[in-house]
């Protein structure tokens, strides 16, 4: 057990971070090179102004017709994504661990707030799971991988809150927490979680063509 703890809290953290950063950068760079060769239009039509205009409309809640048409989905999706990204970065326990190992630190969230945000992420995962099962078109579109990914995303949060509150078996939960967190980072560049990195580019390009060429709104 101790060895696994050592591994998960030591070398695997580095492996996960390197794969996450390297994989993301590598894949984006490879796509940029492919685009040069086969999608020259992207470089011709890409416009920062129109890309930003489009991205802003889509990262502001209810900024698009699509979001207004589905208020529940919009609300859950925004809360889920914000909590998913903010909680691990500004969690007190994480900030302290990082401060102890690397000597750098930053502000952190009150524990009660982090607890609520973690629960919101878990509830968000349940909402998406339910949506994949209940809503007919989403069920049709869902692949087994989509369900696995929901599990991969939920796991660090479930085990995280478990460990923090020292519920029974929290020692194991703690190890699973580290491993699943690392797994999520490793998965990010190679699965559909990569949508995170692709968003500014696909949305930005859609906005560039819509604004610069087609002179129409794309939200």
């Amino acid at each position: 057990m101790h060895e696994i703890y050592q591994l998960a809290s030591g070398i695997l953290v580095w492996v996960a971070l390197i794969v996450f950063v390297g994989g993301t950068a590598g894949r984006l760079i490879r796509m940029a090179i492919t685009a040069r060769k086969k999608d020259a239009v992207i470089y011709q039509y890409f416009s920062f102004y129109y890309a930003l205009r489009s991205i802003l409309h889509w990262i502001i809640p209810f900024g698009s017709m699509s979001m207004r048409a589905r208020p529940a989905m919009t609300l859950v999706a925004f809360i889920f994504h914000i909590c998913l990204i903010i909680t691990p970065i500004f969690l007190a326990a994480h900030v302290i661990l990082i401060a102890e190992s690397w000597g750098i630190g930053w502000a952190y969230l009150p524990n009660a707030v982090a607890d609520i945000m973690t629960i919101l992420v878990i509830l968000g995962c349940l909402f998406f799971l339910l949506r994949r099962i209940v809503q007919r078109d989403v069920r049709y579109l869902s692949t087994p991988g989509d369900f696995v990914l929901l599990l991969v995303v939920a796991a660090p949060f479930v085990t995280g809150i478990w460990t923090y509150h020292q519920w029974s078996g929290f020692e194991i939960a703690g190890i699973v927490h580290m491993l699943s967190g690392e797994l999520m980072l490793i998965c990010l560049p190679f699965t559909r979680l990569f949508h995170m990195a692709l968003f500014p580019f696909t949305r930005g390009y859609a906005g560039s063509e819509a604004g610069g060429v087609r002179r129409a709104r794309d939200w």
């Binding site: 796509m31 492919t34 589905r70 078109d137 989509d146 949508h195 692709l198 696909t202």
Partner: peptide, 12 residues
Amino acid sequence: EAYTKACVHCGL
């Protein structure tokens, strides 16, 4: 690649 990989099957 981007269009086939960015899709998260959300059904929107």
